[in-house]
């Protein structure tokens, strides 16, 4: 989706302003939102790509003006309502009213915490041989799906070089639609700054993305 979340290369957002001695959370509620999101994901209410797509699908003005964890909160609530785990009236009342819906991996309990503190693996068995190998020149396809994709706009149509491959991974574009994992080869593709930003670009800059095989064509 060509949303405001796809920010690489935009201008006008000002300086990066690091905060000295930044706390892990600025407000108590931020931690609750982070933990609820991790817990409901681990319980099977949504996968990571679905949760990203809900955040990307927030109205652009909301996305741009909300703090990070406010975005997480809004997207978490939207997704749980859309998927039938809770309803509008319940969140307005602040109490459960309708029966619970079964979670794929059951309720999230204290014993489950240790499990979620280590990321799961997104690697899967290969279903086909890899189309590309390190050193190959490839073009990032000019695709513009209205659904979730991890191919940023700033590389589309541009030519880069396969640098590494990372094996076969879950394909986010279909996983975000609950349309299956469709595992595909994943590569690091490196682009020259001038290829992305034109002849005035800093000649010492190279930028890489990690690209799923369906994003690429031979160049």
């Amino acid at each position: 989706m060509n949303g405001v979340h796809d920010m690489g290369g935009m201008d006008g957002f000002g300086k990066v302003e690091p905060e000295p001695n930044e706390p892990v959370f600025h407000e108590t509620w931020e931690g609750r939102v982070m933990a609820m999101t991790r817990a409901m994901g681990a319980a099977g209410a949504f996968n990571i790509d679905v949760s990203r797509f809900y955040r990307e699908s927030l109205p652009p003005t909301v996305y741009m003006t909300s703090s990070y964890y406010k975005k997480w909160f809004l997207a978490l609530q939207d997704s749980l309502i859309a998927r039938g785990y809770i309803n509008d009236a319940e969140v307005k009342q602040g109490h459960a009213a309708a029966p619970a819906k079964d979670l794929k991996r059951g309720p999230f309990k204290l014993d489950d915490v240790k499990r979620v503190m280590t990321r799961g693996s997104f690697a899967r068995a290969a279903e086909a041989p890899a189309k590309f190998k390190p050193g190959d020149r490839v073009r990032a396809k000019n695709i513009n799906p209205v659904t979730h994709t991890r191919l940023p706009r700033y590389v589309r149509g541009h030519v880069g070089t396969i640098e590494r491959h990372h094996g076969v991974h879950v394909f986010p574009d279909t996983a975000a639609k609950d349309a299956g994992e469709h595992p595909t080869w994943l590569y690091t593709v490196v682009f020259d700054g001038a290829e992305l930003w034109g002849p005035d670009a800093d000649p010492t800059v190279k930028v890489s993305i990690d690209a799923f095989e369906p994003y690429l064509e031979p160049a």
Binding site: W29, I86, P107
Partner: peptide, 17 residues
């Protein structure tokens, strides 16, 4: 308040501890 409300709902429905 909204975050607390959501946590209460998720807890009462038995989804999270």
């Amino acid at each position: 308040l909204r975050v607390r409300a959501l946590e209460t709902v998720l807890t009462e429905k038995g989804y999270v501890e």
